[in-house]
């Protein structure tokens, strides 16, 4: 056994890493606070947020309003934007001192960058990309539910003897908790000892698109290779239905639409009320991203397409005339 950094009986509390951008918490951080609140209450333990950044006071208050009992804030100009070394070094120092029992992080690119590094620094186990979290009956250990093999297989993973038990969770898995401005909690600033020399990454340029968030859309109209480069009808239908545009990986790889729209294993997991899936074959790596939709409508010219196995309403036809007719129908019946 690789010896743990600290023993299970020294460990206390459920912690959530609060990823932020410009002082505002990321959606997945709020989702984790919502789930964390429920998990902490079930065992009568405290829910603590770990917030690193520069000028993040508002984010700390946001965390309290979304369910944190306590927020540990580490502020330093060197923490303003994420770099592996700065965030790992500061998080590890705080964690080794405070010894949380559990640490949850969002499975965003930077959340995973940090989690993978931190888990090895702390010599502990990490359950990556969870689609569900629960306490194991009897032991109180964290059970992380994960999918493997493109979504075909599920497993539950636990970490028995090492602490913190770490897990990353994908955005959009847990609902956004309501904000309660009256919820009370303690904000604690901790001293940061971080030197520029510790950081081996220099950020040269950073581009964030205004960006859609398909994880919260209640209607998604998705296009794949079958749209042949033309997202026009898909986009028009999405707009008519008050929804967002989704896409298969292939459509994104071909540059027809931005990565923010990608559904699936390496994209986003969505749970809309209605998903219209147009010109997408339905590979498991795609389908894991829509399997929890309320209603799945598939439009595909190939009657053998696997997507029809997983759809409620199936239309075997060329997607272009079908979308055109549907758009006309919706416009005609518009009040």
């Amino acid at each position: 056994m690789i010896p743990p950094a600290y023993a299970p009986d020294e460990a206390r509390g459920l912690w959530v890493f609060l990823e932020q951008e410009g002082g505002q918490l990321e959606g997945v951080a709020l989702e984790l606070l919502g789930k964390g609140r429920e998990l902490a209450r079930a065992r009568g333990i405290l829910l603590t947020g770990l917030l690193l950044g520069h000028g993040v006071e508002a984010g700390a208050r946001q965390a309290i309003a979304h369910g944190a009992d306590h927020v540990v804030v580490a502020e330093d100009p060197l923490l303003a934007a994420y770099t592996t070394d700065a965030y790992t070094n500061v998080s590890a120092r705080i964690i080794l001192e405070r010894k949380p029992e559990t640490l949850l992080l969002g499975a965003t690119p930077n959340g995973r960058d940090l989690a993978g590094r931190l888990a090895v620094r702390l010599r502990t186990g990490l359950t990556a990309d969870c689609t569900g979290l629960a306490w194991e009956e009897g032991t109180g250990l964290l059970l992380g539910e994960v999918t493997g093999f493109g979504g075909g297989v599920m497993a539950s993973i636990k970490c028995a003897r090492h602490r913190p038990q770490m897990a990353t969770v994908r955005p959009g898995i847990f609902p956004l908790p309501p904000s309660d401005p009256d919820h009370a909690g303690r904000i604690e600033s901790v001293a940061v000892s971080l030197e520029a020399g510790e950081i081996r990454t220099q950020i040269l340029e950073r581009v964030r698109h205004a960006g859609v968030d398909i994880t919260r859309a209640s209607v998604i109209v998705a296009g794949g290779r079958g749209v042949k480069g033309d997202f026009g009808p898909v986009t028009e239908l999405a707009r008519l239905l008050g929804g967002e545009v989704g896409a298969s990986r292939v459509a994104c790889d071909l540059g027809w639409i931005g990565r923010d729209h990608q559904i699936g294993q390496t994209g986003f997991v969505t749970r809309p009320k209605v998903a219209l899936v147009c010109g997408i074959s339905g590979a498991t790596q795609f389908s894991v991203g829509v399997k929890d939709a309320g209603l799945i409508v598939a439009i595909n010219s190939d009657p053998e397409a696997p997507i029809f196995e997983e759809a409620d309403v199936c239309v075997v036809d060329d997607l272009f005339p079908v979308l055109e007719a549907l758009i006309a129908e919706l416009k005609r019946r518009r009040p």
Binding site: A155, I157, I296, D312
Partner: peptide, 18 residues
């Protein structure tokens, strides 16, 4: 440090396939 507790086949909700 981690162990697999259980493994099962992912099952999507039954779809109507109309």
């Amino acid at each position: 440090p981690t162990v697999v507790g259980a493994v099962w086949q992912a099952k999507s909700p039954e779809r109507r396939r109309e």
